[in-house]
């Protein structure tokens, strides 16, 4: 089974958020980057499939040079080789533009499966995988928790809302977007890192992929820090009053009731 895993490097979760001079993104100075969480699960699924059925896992990532570190980590965890779409200016592309680059980079790979995380921890659009499927003309399924090989394709477990699930069968090749949390991630090992050094990373530029950016249809104009900071609200009054106030908060602010 040949599996491509599209992964994204994102700012670490606890990165200090400051807005850059243009006001269109955060200041990346001092920000450390990491592998997007649901992509880590996608990679884990791919590696488990390979361990079970054999084959090859190819990681695919787009971004500037620093993305190389995340790619090497993925190789260290067990991926066989990588494709790095190298661009310093990915922000000029919208989700469709990025998906076009990724599609162009993998169209000759003849993969059986393309996996990616459900959504990124930074932009959170949650679309790249599904768009990629459409561009490549492949069937897809999203919010996937488990993948099993089946006759002529795969059988996947898909998460529905409110604790419901369903199985979906798809013919391969197919694109699946993976939900976080179902499998146990593996830690990077020294042996993995050493082996990763000798693995192939193919670097391509958008120009080489002949994917001239078409004008983005959606533009991120500016970013703002939300007014609300996380602070503790102490609800006072008698026990009954405090309880009523809490229920009010849980219903209308947290929307959990």
């Amino acid at each position: 089974m040949k599996i491509i895993v599209a992964i994204k490097q994102v700012p670490e979760r606890d990165a200090r958020i400051r807005i850059d001079a243009e006001g269109t993104w955060i200041d990346l100075q001092d920000v450390e980057f990491t592998l997007n969480e649901s992509d880590a699960y996608a990679l884990e699924e791919a590696l488990q499939l390979k361990e079970e059925h054999g084959g090859e896992v190819v990681v695919l990532s787009a971004g500037p040079e620093r993305v190389g570190k995340t790619i090497r980590e993925a190789l260290a965890k067990g991926a066989d080789r990588a494709i790095h779409v190298e661009s310093d200016d990915l922000a000029a592309y919208d989700a469709l533009g990025v998906a076009r680059l990724l599609a162009a980079a993998v169209k000759d790979e003849q993969a059986d499966l393309i996996l990616t995380g459900l959504q990124s921890d930074d932009l959170g659009l949650g679309q790249t995988g599904v768009i990629l499927a459409e561009l490549l003309g492949l069937p897809h399924a999203s919010l996937i928790l488990k993948i099993e090989a089946a006759e002529g394709g795969v059988k996947v477990l898909r998460e529905l809302e409110d604790g419901w699930f369903q199985h979906v069968e798809l013919p391969t090749p197919a694109v699946l977007t993976i939900q976080s949390g179902n499998s146990k991630l593996r830690y990077a090992t020294l042996m993995g890192i050493k082996k990763a050094k000798t693995k192939e990373v193919r670097r391509v530029t958008p120009l080489e992929l002949a994917a001239e950016p078409e004008a983005s249809v959606v533009v991120l104009e500016r970013v703002l820090l939300p007014n609300k900071q996380r602070t503790t609200q102490i609800l006072g009054g008698s026990p009954a009053e405090a309880a009523a106030a809490l229920v009010e908060k849980l219903r209308f602010e947290v929307r959990a009731l």
Binding site: I17, I26, G124, V218, V219, V223, L224, L225
Partner: peptide, 27 residues
């Protein structure tokens, strides 16, 4: 819409012709 798990708000605009597609967050 929110970015970085709600730590940042972003303003998006649609450009060009053709229908603009949106999905609305619960609540």
């Amino acid at each position: 819409r929110q970015l970085l798990q709600g730590k940042l708000n972003a303003h998006y605009r649609h450009r060009g012709t053709g229908p603009c597609f949106l999905s609305i967050q619960a609540g």
